[in-house]
């Protein structure tokens, strides 16, 4: 359950933003999560509710936007889309893939008042 630690970092980022921008509270937190990364969106959502207590984001909605997995196929010499790690290139069936996208874990936007 490292999602608790991740949400702790997320709430820290939100507090930083509050100090910089001076909003009162956060109603919606928009994060980007790559589908090939190490984060379970359900666990993230659960952990967020817990970690956001007594913070400007208490009660805020966590909106998780998935980023699809993209990998460079060394055999086809082109970018392909994969749903998970360990999946073969959809074109050649090979596993010579270098992940280029899909490991993101980013605080994208905040809806604040």
């Amino acid at each position: 359950m490292h999602e608790i630690a991740l949400c702790n970092s997320l709430v820290d980022l939100i507090r930083d933003q509050q100090r910089q921008r001076g909003f009162r509270r956060v109603r919606r937190v928009i994060v980007e999560v790559g589908v090939l990364g190490h984060v379970d969106p359900h666990a993230l959502d659960f952990a967020f509710d817990v970690e956001a207590r007594n913070s400007p984001a208490e009660g805020a909605v966590l909106e998780i936007r998935e980023i699809q997995g993209r990998a460079w196929c060394m055999d086809c010499s082109r970018l392909v889309t994969i749903a998970r790690r360990g999946e073969a290139c959809p074109d050649c069936g090979g596993f010579g893939l270098i992940v280029e996208q899909g490991e993101e874990l980013r605080l994208k936007e905040l809806e604040v008042i």
């Binding site: 970092s9 997320l10 820290d12 980022l13 933003q17 928009i30 980013r106 605080l107 008042i113």
Partner: peptide, 19 residues
């Protein structure tokens, strides 16, 4: 009406940035 005042701010920061 709070919805009138709510606005989006762009952050674009890696959640693991501090680590």
């Amino acid at each position: 009406d709070p919805s009138r005042r709510a606005h989006l701010v762009s952050v674009e920061q890696d959640i693991l940035g501090k680590n």
